[in-house]
């Protein structure tokens, strides 16, 4: 895991240093991530970085915030992902791991895009930086294997839950740390984290109809994040099968398809 992570970081460094100036020490802003999009509006320049293109699911994004002269800024920030669907618009779950202030031009946030960009509508991320508005249009694609599952609660059939797959990003044979995050849609603009759920976990090798032993079902840690351990006894196509329960009652049975060689 560590080795692969460091290889990944190394590759990212090579890639970034080859195609962007973002690691220029003169700017005081270094990142291993790839530049995804950049926009200058109302005298501010916002550049978004991530390890991969934005996808439907849990994204880790770093924003670089400068003024027109390239000075890195600090201050207060509000970020809202917006899906504009012509007749209506809605937001998505979002997390601010370091709070809503930023320093030295760098701000981390994690939106959970709930649908892909396309004919249905388009995504943008609205920033309010020291009360100046900047809107960055972004492209969100559906990954080959879904990393976000949504379903109506089997209990009340009205609450819509969103379960996002976070880890393992590079699954391998053996023990893997499993992390998921759960949100629900309260209104078009309110997508709070869901705490207090219980999970059952069963990794499943679909083509052979068997599971794997000694898994630890994800348990709530904080802010709607749940962590556990998933074991894979071989390479191939696996399904991480979950059962989400609220006070012992099954809300839904989301699963994630993953594969590795």
């Amino acid at each position: 895991m560590k080795a692969i992570k460091s290889i990944f970081i190394l590759l990212a460094i090579v890639f970034v240093s080859a195609c962007s100036d973002s690691d220029d020490p003169q700017l005081g802003f270094e990142t291993d991530l790839t530049e995804i999009n950049s926009i200058t509006e109302n005298g501010l320049k916002v550049t978004l970085f991530a390890s991969e293109d934005f996808f439907v699911g849990y994204n880790n994004i770093t924003a670089k915030i400068e003024d027109e002269n390239g000075n890195l800024l600090s201050g207060d920030i509000v970020v809202t992902p917006m899906m504009d669907m012509m007749t209506m618009s809605h937001s998505s779950p979002i997390e601010f791991p370091d709070g809503t202030t930023f320093q030295d031009g760098s701000f981390n946030f994690s939106p959970v895009f709930v649908m892909p960009s396309g004919e249905m509508g388009s995504w943008s991320i609205k920033f309010s930086i020291n009360e100046t508005e900047v809107t960055v249009p972004v492209e969100v694609s559906a990954p080959e294997k879904a990393r976000l599952v949504s379903f109506m609660s089997m209990m009340d059939e009205t609450t819509k839950y969103f379960v996002a797959y976070i880890d393992p990003k590079d699954p391998q044979v053996g023990q893997n740390d499993l992390e998921i995050a759960v949100f629900k849609k309260q209104s078009m603009m309110e997508w709070p984290a869901v705490t207090g759920m219980e999970f059952e976990l069963e990794p499943w090798m679909v083509s052979m109809d068997h599971g794997s032993p000694n898994n630890v079902a994800p348990a709530h840690t904080e802010n709607g994040h749940y962590k556990g351990t998933v074991n894979f006894t071989m390479t191939g196509d696996w399904q991480i099968r979950l059962t989400m329960k609220d006070n012992g009652n099954t809300c839904g049975t989301p699963y994630f398809d993953i594969y590795f060689q």
């Binding site: 052979m208 390479t235 196509d237």
Partner: peptide, 14 residues
């Protein structure tokens, strides 16, 4: 190495 009958599934290795 096990080869699934479905073409779109990956071979499995242990």
């Amino acid at each position: 190495t096990m080869y699934p009958n479905e073409v779109d599934q990956l071979p499995m290795f242990m």
